[in-house]
Write a protein that binds this DNA or RNA. Structure first.
Lengths: 232, 232
DNA sequence: TGCGAAATTTGATCCAAATCAATGAAGCTT
DNA sequence: AAGCTTCATTGATTTGGATCAAATTTCGCA
């Protein structure tokens, strides 16, 4: 594992260029690395909150409830920052969806350093607020939407993150399985599959193979997502 | 509205004592205040994220989805810090559950100041991480629990915040209605009511009037909350 | 203290999504 | 390229919670 290389890529993508050399060195000293294959657990939980940067690949953050039930709390992609919580009322595990490279830090140590550099503190605060906002939006999906709205909302959100535009359509490859989508939306794989079929029959999307998706009518999907119109 | 008084109480309860006088004055200059009655909307949304401190009383943060559906994203009590998000895919509104006193700031301005004081930046980061962790836990409730587990989990969580211990039992007054609880857990008021009845019949709790609750067997409720045992 | 509006509880019925059960594709591996 | 394992789709049935519909209780207020 070529750690220095990973740290450099992390620094280049996620650290402001005017971080002091001292801070940079102390960060490098506390950085830890993981380079894992799809399906693996890159980080073993260790009793303190961790701050994880996804350098490449994608991951799911999963919470375990009793009786083996799993809830996908969030998907994260290259460039994202996430926190791996400690064991609260539920246990959390990070899984690689694809081959992944990660850099991570004990959260409290990282914060102690971050607050000595204004740019860094601001960046981390912004990212934390963004994560909170996304979690709030997810709360609405889970609490107040039916299966079709959940899937439409999920696809629109993923497209905004992963989709490339092809004359009005949005095209992307889903890095996660139907089970992962179900575990994220509070649905079973069968229901997810049925809703894919229904959206296909409505002419809103096409699929190719297990992971290829082409949203033919993003506006139509948005309308079915139960989102509130901006002027509503 | 005696603003200086409210700011002092905010400063005493939520600002580290070694904030510089300059910072304190600039905070006071950007602070805004609300003192409202139960049921009121203390803050009209204004296009930028706000950071709200609850000085006294309690509030609910509500997201509106299409067709008048409402989701309670979080309840907050005296001493809490919360962010009032801007209108994303859904609109957010804060409502007072009881008579309330609030102090609030435009989030970006507050952050710009906070990062100049290490103690303050650290405190805000910690609180943001706490809010994110609670939102993650809520995600699991909404996605993977049945009605009884949701209510048990809710009651245990509220008791940790509001309950006073009386020989093994935890006693508190709920500041929110059955509808609010339902809107928070993704259930209807009828289902919430039926689950209260069932938990009562199981001897796990007693209620008095609309808001009085006495958890007779907190451990038993915890077991029904679908939480993961610490050693599981 | 009693009235009345609002909130809660309880009951009957319905329905969306879960569960149970095959069948059909994808995409590995060799 | 054939076979095999895993994943996804589709169909039949069940079920937990929603919806519809009354009671019943609470509690502010006259």
């Amino acid at each position: 594992m070529t750690a220095p290389d990973l740290f450099d890529r992390f620094a280049k993508s996620s650290l402001s260029p005017d971080i002091s050399d001292a801070t940079r060195l102390r960060l490098q000293a506390m950085a830890r690395y993981a380079r894992v294959q799809a399906g693996d657990v890159p980080i073993i939980e260790e009793g303190s909150e961790l701050l994880v940067f996804v350098i490449s690949g994608s991951v799911k953050l999963v919470a375990q409830a009793s009786q083996g039930r799993e809830q996908v709390v969030a998907f994260h992609f290259a460039g994202d920052l996430l926190t791996l919580p400690v064991h609260l009322a539920h246990a959390y595990t990070l899984y690689a969806l694809e081959d992944c490279e990660l850099v991570y830090f004990p959260a409290s140590q990282f914060f102690k350093l971050a607050v000595t550099e204004q740019g860094m503190a601001n960046d981390i605060l912004d990212r934390a607020m963004g994560a909170l906002a996304r979690c709030h939006e997810k709360t609405i999906s889970l609490g107040r939407k039916n299966a079709q709205e959940k899937l439409a909302s999920f696809l629109v959100t993923i497209a905004a993150r992963l989709g490339s535009s092809e004359d009005g359509a949005s095209v992307f490859e889903l890095p996660m399985s139907r089970r992962d989508i179900g575990d994220s939306l509070g649905l079973t794989i069968e229901t997810v599959s049925r809703q894919f079929s229904e959206l296909r029959e409505l002419g809103l999307l096409e699929t190719s193979g297990r992971s290829g998706v082409r949203l033919l009518d993003p506006a139509g999907l948005e309308a079915r997502a139960g989102h509130l119109a901006p002027a509503d």
